[in-house]
């Protein structure tokens, strides 16, 4: 199955491990994620004012590329667009909804982008977790050769995957999709109410203290509930919950660092794939000792 895939800027650099692990895992499941040709940055955030149209140009341009992929035969009659990054997912999906609900706005945007073909409104933006759910968690279970037994993981959703309601891939108050995935991988799922609390998002460039306070709360809640690691689906959440542990430690010297994974990294480990696909070197808090302790990776994985 070939599906159009939108990476987003950060997945090509600081979050390359998210992409690498996802592509490897998808391949194992018989899915080929075909990268959108000539994609542009989606803008990361959905523009919230009522009159602004220029900030919807970038997302819609990407949706036009999906149309082009279908016409060029890069994919066959698949108008879905899969994303990995939660923020890209939210922005693309919301802009899509916006123009589909306002045909005047769509016309203006199409007129503005007169060098592109018109967006016809047929693209469906989905998140990789939705694709996995469609395939079925049974299929996931079948592909697990290295079950994540003994690993206590707290899934973290953040905001963009769940809110607002018309965009969310799961219930905004009690999401379960990552829990189902992690159970299928053999891990022990630790639930905690802060799984849906925002990590602070872009506040990280304005005031890192604010973000590290929030991150501390989120991580401590997970730890108090018994978690040994966190999984998530967004490079910004990763930065705020993983890299910012540096700031947390400066403020709370007795804080024990806790590893944070992209859910696809754990899938790759669970599927017993080649360690090149795990990309653990890009995780700030080194998860190797935890994984070694649980016998999930071999010793010669160490750098």
């Amino acid at each position: 199955m070939k599906v159009p895939y939108y990476p987003g800027c950060t997945l090509k650099t600081k979050a390359k491990n998210f992409e690498t692990s996802a592509l490897a895992v998808a391949k194992k499941l018989g899915i080929e994620l075909i990268e959108l040709p000539r994609w542009n940055c989606c803008g990361t955030v959905y523009s919230l004012t009522d009159d602004d149209l220029i900030h919807h140009v970038a997302p819609i341009r990407n949706l036009i590329r999906v149309q082009e992929m279908n016409k060029n035969g890069l994919v066959e009659n698949d108008h879905r667009l899969v994303t990995l990054c939660s923020m890209c997912f939210n922005t693309l999906k919301r802009s899509n909804i916006r123009v589909l609900e306002n045909s005047d706005d769509l016309k203006k945007i199409n007129d503005f982008m007169y060098l592109e073909e018109d967006y016809e409104g047929n693209v469906e933006v989905i998140h990789f977790l939705e694709l996995i759910k469609d395939i079925g968690f049974e299929k996931i279970r079948e592909n697990v050769t290295n079950p994540l037994e003994g690993l206590k993981i707290a899934p973290y959703y953040g905001c963009m995957l769940l809110r607002p309601k018309e965009v969310g891939i799961d219930d905004p108050e009690e999401p379960v999709i990552q829990a189902e995935l992690l159970s299928a991988l053999g891990a022990e799922v630790i639930d905690n109410p802060y799984k849906k609390v925002c990590c602070g998002s872009y506040q990280t460039i304005q005031d890192k203290q604010v973000v590290s306070n929030l991150a501390y709360d989120i991580l401590m809640r997970a730890k108090d509930a018994g978690a040994e690691a966190i999984t998530l689906s967004c490079p910004l959440c990763m930065f705020n919950l993983d890299s910012r542990q540096k700031e947390i430690k400066e403020e709370h010297p007795y804080f024990n660092e806790i590893p944070v994974f992209y859910f696809t990294q754990l899938m790759a480990i669970g599927f017993g794939l080649n360690e090149d696909s795990y990309g653990l070197d890009l995780n700030y808090v080194n998860p190797e000792s935890l994984l070694l302790e649980k016998n999930l990776i071999r010793r010669n994985n160490a750098k």
Binding site: G8, C9, T10, T13, K14, A15, C41, G43, T44, V45, S47, H55, C85, M87, S201, Y202, Q203, T204, I205, Q206, C234, P235, L236, F239, S243
Partner: peptide
């Protein structure tokens, strides 16, 4: 340190 996603959303 900051990933592109942080800079772009912050500036927006």
């Amino acid at each position: 340190r900051l990933p592109q996603i942080a800079l772009i959303s912050g500036m927006r």
